[in-house]
């Protein structure tokens, strides 16, 4: 294919990432050969546990530092060689707080508008639009240090939206916010996205956020993309369901479960993929619940483990994450409850 043709094809692709690696100080292998493609106009979630390399990838994509090897392009522009062009088409909100707190929300936007060179004739309109998209009109004149966490986040996003970027990068946009503030952030973002068709690339370690708001998800673990697809693809890919056993909360039953390797014996059963205990819940991942359930029940019964309740559920993104990233989310951290109980 000629270069010109390649360019044309690229127009539909917002981000192309090819064998990207980043080694910090010659030691920490933060990115270990990342390949990804993000289509124009989608909301893309990069999901991974802490330390998996999400921030590092975003900082390479936003031209903050060079990768150790590999290539990344934003709308055809190489993030290393054409970094100035890339900076003109992206908006970015880092994980940490990124607004000046000793001036007002309006003034923050004004300074950014000036840095980005928004002409003085359209400046006020751009600022008002951004304030409105993020629902901040009423507090624009207040000092940012008086804002709540959710308001600060929305202001940061407003600063990034000011110039209507083609790609918006958000690093853990709702980290540390309570559920209603998270919801407000996403509702505003979704309606902005609907209006302008901006591509959104966000990092998160909240399953439910990726599930609810993304068109596509990639799971990253230890600097590698371990799974990529839509949230429902990923869930379907498990071909399995989960049976949750709520154990009677008595010490002897729990003790038995652990003493005589019951867990390992359950895992060894035919059709059983995995078994995990959280508190008083035993989750068993099975391929065919109707066949596997009687066998598991019999085993538990023989060992004298008493049960309160049994429930079967289809896999959630949480389970996908467990399988591919080898760890489970802390449920109560995320605010939006789901799962067997």
């Amino acid at each position: 294919m000629t270069y010109a043709k390649l360019q044309k094809v690229n127009m539909k692709i917002a981000l192309e990432i090819d064998r990207l690696t980043k080694i910090y100080e010659g030691r920490v292998n933060a990115l270990d050969g990342v390949d990804l493609e993000v289509k124009d106009g989608v909301i893309f979630a990069l999901l991974g546990p802490n330390g998996s390399g999400k921030t590092t990838l975003m900082r390479v994509l936003t031209t903050q530092f060079r990768p150790t090897s590999g290539v990344a392009r934003a709308f055809g522009h190489d993030v290393v060689r054409e970094d100035a062009q890339v900076r003109k088409i992206i908006g970015y909100v880092p994980q940490e707080m990124s607004v000046w707190t000793d001036i007002t929300g309006f003034e923050n936007l004004l300074i950014y508008a000036k840095i980005y060179g928004v002409s003085s004739s359209s400046r006020n309109k751009c600022i008002q639009d951004a304030l409105q998209s993020m629902g901040l009109e009423e507090v624009e004149g207040k000092l940012v240090k008086k804002y709540s966490g959710g308001m600060i986040r929305r202001l940061e996003i407003a600063c990034a939206l000011l110039v209507k970027p083609r790609i918006l990068f958000l690093d853990e946009p709702t980290l540390g916010l309570d559920p209603s503030a998270r919801k407000a952030v996403w509702e505003n973002l979704m309606s902005f996205k609907k209006e302008y068709g901006t591509t959104v690339f966000f990092n998160t370690h909240y399953m439910d956020e990726a599930d609810l708001y993304s068109d596509e998800v990639a799971i990253i673990n230890k600097g590698k993309i371990v799974k990529f697809g839509t949230a429902s693809d990923l869930k379907r890919s498990l071909h399995s369901e989960i049976i949750s056993f709520l154990l009677a909360d008595d010490q002897t039953g729990m003790g038995r479960l652990f003493r005589s390797n019951v867990l390992d014996r359950i895992k060894a059963l035919n059709l059983v993929d995995d078994a995990v205990v959280h508190g008083t819940v035993l989750d068993v991942t099975v391929e065919d619940g109707e066949v596997a359930l009687p066998a598991i029940m019999e085993l538990l019964n023989c060992e004298g483990v008493k049960l309160k309740r049994v429930k079967a559920t289809n896999p959630t993104l949480d389970d996908v994450f467990l399988k591919y990233a080898g760890m489970r989310q802390q449920r109560n951290q995320s605010g939006y409850h789901h799962g067997p109980n």
Binding site: Q64, R87, M97, S98, I115
Partner: peptide
Amino acid sequence: ETGILKRLLVAP
């Protein structure tokens, strides 16, 4: 320490 500098360096 906050993200302000990161953000300024990503501005054109």
